Simulated scan of single mutants.
Amino acid sequence: MDHDTAARTTLIRSASDAGSRVFETILTRSPISRIDIARQTGLSQAAVTKAVAPLVAAGLVDAPPASHRDGTPGRPVSPVSIVLESMVMIGVKVNVDEIIAVA
């Protein structure tokens, strides 16, 4: 396991409940804005921002600078998204007579 993979694994294992919910929301709804993450998880925007920062630092999530507005007043929207190259997804389905796995 290389250094980056080990760091990412440590980050995911040590994530708080809020961090885990934020990561799961980004993983399943990417790209998504921080305000939408807050709405989906019930967390404050500050908690979402705090949870996203280490994910960006670990290279799991991409958060480009805000570049466009969504037509509402306030800060420009800056959607965050999963960095697909940073992980491998594994799915396993267990049936009575077979096991199916995909990566």
Rank of each mutant, 00 (worst) to 15 (best):
Met1Ala: 09
His3Val: 12
His3Pro: 00
Asp4Thr: 15
Ala7Gln: 13
Arg8Met: 08
Thr10Asn: 13
Ile12Gly: 00
Arg13Ile: 04
Ala18Phe: 01
Gly19Asp: 05
Arg21Tyr: 01
Val22Cys: 02
Phe23Gly: 07
Thr25Gly: 02
Thr25Pro: 11
Thr25Glu: 06
Ile26Pro: 04
Leu27Met: 12
Leu27Arg: 15
Thr28Gln: 11
Thr28Gly: 10
Thr28Ile: 09
Arg29Cys: 09
Ser30Glu: 08
Pro31Ile: 10
Pro31Asn: 13
Ser33Thr: 15
Ser33Leu: 11
Ser33Met: 10
Ser33Val: 07
Asp36Tyr: 07
Asp36Gly: 07
Ile37Asn: 01
Arg39Thr: 05
Arg39Leu: 05
Gly42Met: 11
Leu43Met: 02
Leu43Gly: 01
Gln45Gly: 10
Gln45Met: 13
Ala46Gln: 11
Ala47Ser: 11
Ala47Met: 05
Thr49Trp: 00
Thr49Lys: 00
Thr49Pro: 00
Lys50Asn: 09
Lys50Asp: 05
Ala51Leu: 03
Val52Asp: 05
Ala53Asp: 10
Ala53Val: 05
Ala53Cys: 00
Ala53Pro: 03
Pro54Ala: 11
Pro54Trp: 03
Leu55Arg: 14
Leu55Ser: 13
Leu55Gly: 02
Leu55Ile: 07
Val56Ala: 07
Val56Trp: 03
Val56Gln: 06
Ala57Pro: 01
Ala58Ile: 03
Gly59Thr: 04
Gly59Val: 07
Val61Lys: 09
Val61Tyr: 06
Asp62Thr: 12
Asp62Ala: 13
Ala63Thr: 04
Ala63Asp: 11
Ala63Ser: 14
Ala63Gln: 14
Pro64His: 12
Pro65Tyr: 05
Pro65Gly: 04
Ser67Val: 10
Ser67Asp: 10
His68Gly: 09
Arg69Pro: 00
Gly71His: 12
Gly71Pro: 00
Gly71Glu: 15
Pro73Arg: 02
Pro73Cys: 05
Gly74Ala: 02
Gly74Val: 05
Arg75Tyr: 04
Arg75Trp: 02
Pro76Met: 01
Val77Ser: 14
Ser78Pro: 01
Ser78Phe: 04
Ser78Thr: 09
Pro79Ser: 08
Val80Leu: 09
Ile82Pro: 00
Leu84Lys: 13
Leu84Pro: 02
Glu85Phe: 00
Ser86Asp: 11
Ser86Ile: 09
Met87Tyr: 14
Val88Arg: 13
Val88Asp: 14
Met89Cys: 15
Ile90Leu: 10
Val92Tyr: 06
Val92Phe: 06
Val92Leu: 13
Lys93Asp: 11
Val94Gly: 04
Val94Asn: 08
Asn95Phe: 15
Asn95Ile: 07
Val96Ile: 15
Val96Met: 13
Ile99Gly: 04
Ile99Ala: 06
Ile100Leu: 12
Ala101Cys: 08
Val102Ile: 10
Val102Lys: 08
